[in-house]
Amino acid sequence: MAFEILSIAFMFIGAIFLLAGSIGLIRLKDTYSRLHALTKADVLGFGFIVLSCILSTDLLSHWIKLLLVWLLVISYSALVGYALANRKKRYA
């Protein structure tokens, strides 16, 4: 039961961090700053959500798959952020 409450709490914290990232996306003035908001705050919020999903199940296969999702989202967030910043600086 404690795990359930902790899991829901983590998910709310994750949702709030994601919202913080999105609000940063709207209110910040420069493209590079918006990239900061997206690749840092969003990924942190996503990490909390994955943590809450891990707490809410007890199968090892689910844990491994959830960890894979987390690793994948971290790496592609960094990659896409780098690609966007680089291409924007060179071409736009």
């Binding site: 994948l72 790496s75 592609y76 990659l79 780098y82 690609a83 680089n86 291409r87």
Partner: peptide, 14 residues
């Protein structure tokens, strides 16, 4: 395409 070692490494890993 984009000749970038980061992208190459990521695509080869994934």
């Amino acid at each position: 395409y984009w000749d970038n070692p980061l992208l190459k490494g990521f695509s080869r890993l994934s």
